[in-house]
């Protein structure tokens, strides 16, 4: 082995160090998921069923409506178009659900979990930037989850015959990635907070499933919630803090055309929503960095970086 190395601190070195850290931390997620073959079945295929249920609801509503409008071909055409758009909304929501669940269970609760299995202290002792650690988890999580997201999308198109019309693929990609980064940024922020809340964190994640599916409009255009008189807009505005809300609204506009649902169910136009998403992404990342730094100091002061293994 070489004699004691001279330690560098220049920018190039730091970038290299943190990139390596990102790769290092994402590695277990990417290979780990593939290494356990049951994973594909449990994490990518089984959840499709839940989404299928929502698809069938609209199919069944649509079929009853269609039958009731017998004889009126224009009305029937409208019903068919609406039903397709609603089902497409569900499928898009299903892809986003995959990421949201990953954010909740593999980002937000992850640092707490790492602490319990004794890895956190080793991470906190290493020279890499803490954001690189969270970044690695996020990248790994995204890769791991995109399999499920893609299978949802494919099933939507092949099995349920959903028709997407993409006119502007570049904006679509921009919106998708902005939403994704904002989502994982939010997850990073939660990660530090969860470290503080400990065991209650698990329940918090559980609590952010259905209520958020609801308030962010994962399975229906969220504009519908805005139009419920009274409490609807309040819930929807609260739900908008989860980037999935604007992300889904923009994605639906971009894939169904802004005239779908008579153009009555969108919140803003796509551009505005994209700006909001970018803003959220930056904001959450910054907040994540500061809350992590704060939490790290707090934990170091109180001796809470390690729990089970002294």
């Amino acid at each position: 082995m070489k004699p004691a190395t001279v330690r560098r601190t220049d920018l190039r070195y730091r970038i290299g160090l943190n990139l390596r850290a990102v790769v290092g931390r994402s590695y277990p997620r990417i290979v780990g998921a593939n290494r356990e073959p049951s994973w594909i079945f449990f994490e990518a295929l089984l959840p499709l069923l839940g989404i299928a249920a929502y698809v069938f609801i609209y199919q069944s509503f649509g079929a009853r409506s269609f039958a009731a409008a017998a004889g009126n071909t224009t009305a029937q055409a409208v019903i068919s178009a609406n039903t397709n758009a609603l089902i497409a909304s569900v499928v898009l929501g299903g892809t986003m659900v995959a990421f949201w669940l990953n954010v909740l269970w593999s980002m937000a609760s992850q640092l707490y979990w790492e602490k319990e299995i004794g890895n956190l202290q080793l991470y906190m002792m290493a020279p890499m930037n803490r954001m690189a650690l969270l970044g690695g988890m996020a990248v790994g999580g995204m890769v791991m989850t995109s399999m499920r997201a893609v299978s949802t999308l494919v099933a939507g198109i092949l099995v349920f015959g959903v028709i997407f019309q993409v006119a502007d693929p570049l904006t679509l990609l921009a919106v998708f990635f902005a939403a994704l980064i904002a989502l994982y940024g939010l997850g990073m922020m939660f990660a530090s907070l969860y470290l503080l809340w400990g065991r209650e964190a698990w329940n918090l994640s559980a609590l952010m499933e259905e209520p958020i599916f609801f308030s962010s409009g994962f399975y229906f255009p969220v504009g519908g919630l805005f139009r419920v008189p009274g409490w609807g807009p309040i819930i929807a505005i609260i739900g908008s803090f989860v980037p999935a809300t604007f992300g889904l609204d923009a994605l639906r506009q971009l894939t169904l055309g802004s005239t779908a649902f008579g153009g009555q169910l969108w919140i803003f136009d796509v551009k505005t929503e994209l700006y909001i998403l970018v803003f959220m992404a930056v904001l959450f990342l910054i907040l994540a960095r500061y809350s992590l730094r704060y939490l790290e100091t707090l934990a170091k002061r109180e001796g809470k970086l390690t729990s089970r293994h002294q």
Partner: peptide, 17 residues
């Protein structure tokens, strides 16, 4: 979630059910 799915369905011009 289901309530809203139904609401949206009825809202965009389909028959209430």
């Amino acid at each position: 979630i289901l309530v809203l799915m139904y609401t949206v369905f009825a809202f965009i011009g389909n028959r209430p059910d």
